[in-house]
Amino acid sequence: MTAQLLLVQALNGLQFGVLLFLVAAGLTLVFGVMDFINLAHGVQYMLGAYLGASLAAATGSFWLGLLLALPAALACGLALEWLVFRHLYDRDHLAQVLATFGVILFLNEAVKVIWGSAPLQVPIPDALQGGIALMPGLVYPVYRVAILAAGLATAALLWLLVERTRAGALVRAGASNRPMLAAMGVDTGRLFMLVFGCGAMLAGFAGVMAAPILSVDPGMGDTVLILAFVVIVIGGIGSVRGAFVAALLVGVIETLGRSLLPDVMRLFLAPSPARQAGAALGSMLVYIAMALILAVRPRGLFPARAG
């Protein structure tokens, strides 16, 4: 393992972390501000990818597809909020989990009925073709740099929105103490809708951005959802800053753990068991890290809720 390879792996981890952040940002806001467990957040990521894929195919341009997919994802999110989630805010978490799980099943099958069960193909836009040679024989696709840039830009924009605007102040207040906010005369229903719409759009954005490198298939949201939950729990529920730090952390731990552990294990074990044990431990590492962080800081790295 050379220093160069280590650097490349760290970059890979950061890029994966940024992608996770795009999904987790919306989830943490919805969970934090509304105290609403939305398992269907991963499905919104999937919807974004499918909308982006078919709009890009229909218009012949990835950029136009992306531009159109965002309002479409927002509309889907608002429709879901209006049809289903709105009626669940005052129910307990179990009811929310059950209902949003139902939404997952429904939408996964609906996507299959509309687009078919075979994965879709989204080509990388021409402007972002090609790559940068990071080490001999390995090209780092320009498109991944674009994901990194888009993620960082989104993080900056969200930070400005949440920390520097009036709407952001209300969101933070909602995450900190919801009944008090309502008592101050703020229309929490509208605030919730706004937050939910933004969350859905962010997830949709992540989906469109991921489509050219990941497989667009029914169920693609399910794997991402679990990692997104890990991210928001580590980061502190409701905190965008926490989600950002935690997403990068999870991305780097995942990637470095997977690539380094088998080699580390070989110091103690025979090659073959070392590889399998290393791989198994590598895939557990994120969850071990989560347990350790929660043991030290039970409410995550940057807790948003008061008291």
Partner: peptide, 14 residues
Amino acid sequence: TQLDFSAELAKIAA
């Protein structure tokens, strides 16, 4: 459940 193979691809290149 692997999504991103960048770590493995770097290993292959090395």
